[in-house]
C-alpha cells in the first residue's frame, strides 16, 4: 500500500489531524514549564484519544474517557497541583538537569515498539469501521463473561478511594482531640 492510497481515504485525514494534535499536546505534557499547563495539555491529549476511539468505532469507551479522565481525573490532578504549590506561575526545578539519556532511551523505546508493530502488522486493514460498537454489547460483556473482573475492579476502586481518604486525612494529636471534644 502506498502513501497516496492511504491518504486518499477521508478517514485518514481525520486521523492525521487528530494524531498531530495528540502528539503535540503529549510532547507539551512532558516539556511544559508550568504544572497547570502540563495538566491542561493532558486534557487535549485525552480529548484527541477520545476522537481516535470514535474513529475506531468505540463510542462508549470514548465517552467514558471524556467523563472519567477529563471530567474527574484531571480535576483531581489540578487539586493536587494547587495544593502542593501556591504560586501558579513558572517555576524552576521541575525537571532534572541531565536530559540526554532519558531522551535517547525514550527514542529507543519508540523505535523498538514502532518497528515491532509495523513488522508484525504491516498494512493489515481495520475491519469494522463506521459501525459503532453498541453499548448493549459492551454491557453484556461486562456483566456476563467479565462479571467477576468487573466486580473486582469495582472493589479495587472502592478500596483505593477509602485508602486515599485514610492516607490524606489529617490525624489530630491527643491534645487537639481533647480541644475538639471540649468544643
Amino acid at each position: 500500500m502506498t502513501f497516496e492510497t492511504w491518504i486518499s481515504e477521508p478517514v485518514n485525514w481525520a486521523f492525521s489531524a487528530i494524531a498531530l494534535a495528540v502528539l503535540f499536546s503529549g510532547l507539551r505534557v512532558v516539556t511544559a514549564k508550568n504544572v497547570v499547563h502540563a495538566a491542561l495539555y493532558l486534557v487535549a491529549t485525552l480529548a484527541g484519544t477520545a476522537g481516535l476511539f470514535l474513529i475506531l468505532s468505540a463510542e462508549f469507551v470514548a465517552w467514558v474517557l471524556v467523563l472519567v479522565y477529563i471530567g474527574a481525573v484531571i480535576v483531581l490532578f489540578l487539586f493536587g497541583i494547587m495544593i502542593t504549590r501556591a504560586p501558579t506561575g513558572l517555576d524552576e526545578g521541575l525537571d532534572v538537569e541531565k536530559k540526554l539519556w532519558p531522551a535517547l532511551l525514550s527514542v529507543a523505546v519508540f523505535v523498538a515498539m514502532a518497528w515491532a508493530s509495523v513488522n508484525a502488522f504491516g498494512t493489515q486493514e481495520i475491519l469494522d469501521t463506521g459501525n459503532p460498537t453498541s453499548t448493549e454489547i459492551l454491557g453484556e460483556a461486562l456483566l456476563g463473561r467479565f462479571v467477576i473482573p468487573f466486580e473486582i475492579v469495582g472493589f479495587i476502586l472502592l478500596a483505593a478511594l477509602v485508602g486515599g481518604i485514610t492516607v490524606a486525612r489529617k490525624d489530630l494529636t491527643p491534645a487537639e482531640e481533647e480541644e475538639e471534644a471540649a468544643v
Binding site: 494524531a19 502528539l23 515498539m113 502488522f121 493489515q124
Partner: peptide
Amino acid sequence: MVVSQFLVLAAALFAM
C-alpha cells in the same frame, strides 16, 4: 485505515 498507524501513534505517546 491500517492497524499500524494507531500502534505507531501509541508507541510515540508511550515513549513520551
